[in-house]
């Protein structure tokens, strides 16, 4: 979205008279991108759907607090990332299992997931991703599968481009080792 268009949209979102219409535009513009971002963290479609809706509700409720210090999309990605990670934390707490155990189970469940059309290699990729620290996994997915620029990822994750490049490089190396090992 162009910067000027984004500024106009933010103004409309903060104005109670135009908020609803502007929010419709916002949802339409970002629903797919945010969905895929969330889906790659929580893996399951139903969970991604829940988290995505919560994310948009949070955005709607907190738009007045958006100070415009970062770009609108990075603010929304940040909310989506936090919501997804919090969701997983709550899920593991409710099931009384560790975060690692939850990640393993999530990948195992993919095999029976009708909305996962992956073959052996995709499943193995998810297994490899489950072994990575959250940050490396996020950077890898955002860069490789969501095709985001380092500068964009840097705004979302509030990490320097240099550190992101290192994280990405480490992630790729670990995934390569995992996929090539047998």
């Amino acid at each position: 979205m162009q910067l000027l268009a984004e500024e106009a949209l933010i103004d409309e979102l903060k104005n109670p008279n135009t908020r609803e219409r502007a929010f419709g535009v916002l949802v339409n513009t970002y629903k797919e991108r945010l969905y895929w971002h969330i889906r790659r963290i929580v893996l399951n479609h139903d969970d991604a759907d829940d988290v995505l809706q919560n994310t948009f509700i949070k955005i709607y409720r907190n738009i007045d607090g958006f100070k415009g210090e970062s770009k609108l999309y990075s603010w929304m990605y940040r909310i989506a990332t936090n919501e997804s990670l919090t969701f997983l934390k709550q899920k593991s707490k409710k099931s009384g299992i560790s975060d690692e155990e939850l990640k393993t189970r999530m990948v195992e469940n993919l095999e029976a997931d009708v909305y996962f059309e992956g073959e052996e290699i995709q499943l193995k990729l998810q297994k490899a991703l489950a072994t990575l620290p959250d940050k490396q996994k996020l950077v890898f997915n955002m860069k490789y599968y969501q095709d985001m620029k380092y500068e964009e990822i840097s705004e979302v994750l509030e990490t320097s481009v240099g550190a992101l490049k290192t994280s990405y490089h480490l992630a790729v190396k670990k995934i390569e080792t995992y996929l090539k090992a047998d």
Partner: peptide, 10 residues
């Protein structure tokens, strides 16, 4: 070595 798609659908 990385698959082009990661297999998720909606």
């Amino acid at each position: 070595f990385l698959p082009k798609s990661d297999g998720f659908t909606v």
